[in-house]
Nucleic acid binder design. Structure first.
Lengths: 340, 340
DNA sequence: AGTATAGATGAAAACGTTTACGATGTCAAG
DNA sequence: CTTGACATCGTAAACGTTTTCATCTATACT
């Protein structure tokens, strides 16, 4: 039913080859003919069949991203912003964006194979990288174009963009130290995320620089949700020698920590300092407003997508490894150590 | 380079038609041949070229959803959850999910045309419906399969799933009235969203039932962000006869309202009652925890996607119009009217 | 006038599938 | 032995493009 090149060709009285050339702007067609074709196309509301184009061109003009919905990550506004950045960039260059949630029961690599082997997409964006990331190893092995959001510790080079978690945590920790804190608890993200390690590094580096011994007891691992921030904070605060400050690996856990402190009768920002990571909108809503490390989610998505598109177009990337330096946003949840 | 049907055919010594039949499970191929083909396919790691299949079948096996990134909606975790529900359902039935952000400068309908006329997707999910929704009119006119999240006021029937905002607001308002409140301010969403009207209806209905006159002065329109909730609340509270309760059309504005009340020295839940809508994770984090109307975002996305797939498979929908009744979640942000 | 050249066009192959149709072979019933 | 039914398989068309190559015409040059 929809109008095809063939229809237009018959209409105008030329061959489909000429129509194709006229519409694509290819050289080798008389200006007068081109105008006739364009007029006919407009009149008939012609639109190309993209599937036919894709089969012919052996390109899908589609980018893919696979997100685990089971994890906490999808409901996180950080992710929504990231995706918005990716999407805006993609459409700017007329790429489609295929978002696939990972079927929970299925093997994760199976989802990647589906994308790669069945040629559903031209390139992939890999998010929340992990140590020894098998997805990256697979894509490298298949020689499939991708850009990762985050680094990994595998023994191979690949293009990525990452927010420098070590840098961010280093400065956050220094900030707390400058405020007089010495016992700073740290609520980490699970070590299955590569960034956990980096951020912890920054924390340790700042401590070391100020000759504060690293205390294993002050490290806890949360699940990124506010509930675990709450529980772990209650745990920390009920010890005999409680910390005077707590750093959480994301704003949700930090917000949970604020709730715990409040429930235990402490004034956050005075009796206890709490510092987050991400700077999601929530950070400005909780009371007191959260001092945190800002991750430019939208920009990161935008930039990664840009890198991937350049990769696909064979343009040389000026930088295959981008490390963004996050900024510490000082609000009200941290203060000088209470002199008790 | 990748292996095709043709390669397999040559390998096994049969025609590509037989190979195709064997792989697809179609009848008319000897069991012994089928096994040989399957073995060869496995050995060669054969995967079909989906673009070729799509061109041939005239189906894309892809669902589309278009999201405006400029609006506040994308960063909203509500939307992330919704999308997760859609994505999980889609992959369950082996559909791809195409997520397109609307190019901000471009005409919105242009994005829909791209999807429909160029046959990028088999069906669409239309979100945040509006009064006289031109997108719906367009899809109806093109006879293109879609399911809407939300109703509209246009003069035509179409399949949708909606959360009954009138029901939700009606019960929320009744709840406040039962607590003794009479002057209940209402921070609406912009009327460009269809649900704004419904929710306001529920509010008015509850008032009318209790013979409380509707006061235009108590209605304000926010932009869904916490900032506007904050500003409008300060505005309400600085009047000579301030309301004793405030309903906001989403949790973000409600959270902003909580901040404003706090800044003005009021204790939320005692001096002032605040009620939200959506029940995003934030609602449990703010202090006091927000009494709000729960919208099942994930389930809604899941269900809508299910409806769309059934539509595409020509199965008859048991219900073309689904109205979910949201539940009031009572927490701590509302209390009896202060007897001053 | 003859010929080289450039520009415009069409025929046809190709992309990798699915499927309608026809051909072949086998076997049982008449 | 003939006939029909059935199972199996191959041929070829189709899906709607893009692109290579050959053809044709008109112009310009010798």
């Amino acid at each position: 039913m929809p109008v095809t090149l063939h229809d237009l060709a018959r209409e105008v009285g030329v061959s489909i080859a000429t129509v194709s050339r006229a519409l694509s702007g290819a050289p080798g067609v008389a200006e007068e003919t081109r105008q006739r074709v364009l007029a006919a196309a407009r009149a008939a509301h012609y639109r190309p069949n993209v599937m036919a184009q894709r089969l012919q061109k052996q390109r899908t003009d589609t980018l893919g991203i696979i997100v685990p919905t089971s994890s906490t990550r999808f409901g996180d506004p950080f992710f929504g912003d990231f995706l918005a950045g990716v999407g805006d960039k993609a459409i700017e260059h007329e790429y489609d964006l295929l978002v696939s949630t990972r079927a929970p029961e299925a093997d994760e690599l199976h989802t990647y194979e589906r994308m790669v082997r069945e040629r559903r997409v031209d390139g992939l964006i890999v998010i929340s990288t992990r140590p020894h990331d098998e997805r990256i190893l697979y894509l490298l092995e298949q020689n499939f174009p991708f850009v990762a959001f985050g680094r990994s510790d595998i023994d191979a080079e690949f293009p990525y963009l990452d927010v420098d978690g070590e840098y961010g945590m280093y400065h956050a920790t220094r900030y707390l130290i400058a405020l007089g804190h010495r016992r700073i608890a740290y609520i980490s993200a699970p070590y299955t995320f590569m960034y956990s390690t980096h951020r912890l590094q920054g924390y340790r580096k700042a401590l070391a620089e100020h000759n504060i011994p690293f205390d294993e007891q002050l490290i806890a691992i949360g699940d990124l949700r506010d509930r675990s921030g709450y529980n772990l904070t209650r745990d920390f605060l009920s010890r005999e020698n409680p910390p005077s400050a707590i750093i959480a690996c994301n704003d949700w856990m930090a917000s949970g920590a604020i709730g715990a402190a409040r429930d235990m009768g402490l004034t956050v920002g005075q009796d206890l300092s709490i510092l987050g990571f991400d700077d999601v909108p929530l950070a400005q809503i909780v009371h007191p407003r959260l001092t945190t490390v800002h991750q430019p989610a939208y920009e990161a998505g935008w930039h990664i997508c840009d890198m991937l598109i350049r990769l696909l177009r064979q343009e040389t990337l000026e930088q295959r490894h981008v490390l963004l330096q996050p900024e510490l946003i000082v609000r009200e949840s941290c203060g000088p150590r209470a002199t008790s």
